[in-house]
């Protein structure tokens, strides 16, 4: 194992965090490319099953933001 890269799945609320991630781009902030974003209409939409499913599919971390 030369270099382990974690895979993080992010569930971002369309109205706030997804927009914040957009703004991070607009501001050209740099961050590691390990995040895969799933846009959801509201964090209220986040079913615990999504988190379990993500882990089962090999995610190393889950980020829920909203």
């Amino acid at each position: 194992m030369s270099k382990w890269e974690p895979k993080i799945i992010a569930f971002l609320c369309n109205w706030c965090s997804y927009g914040a991630a957009d703004l991070a781009g607009v501001s050209r902030m740099q961050y590691p490319a390990n995040i895969r974003v799933v846009r959801i209409p509201c964090t209220g939409r986040l079913s615990p099953k999504f988190i379990l499913s993500a882990f089962m599919n090999g995610a190393d971390g889950i980020w829920v933001s909203g």
């Binding site: 050209r28 740099q30 490319a33």
Partner: peptide, 19 residues
């Protein structure tokens, strides 16, 4: 969103960005 969430924020790592 391959601009705000990819190209703009992973400028230094084109390979990872493409991935």
């Amino acid at each position: 969103n391959i601009r705000n969430h990819v190209s703009w924020v992973h400028k230094a790592n084109p390979d990872q960005a493409t991935e």
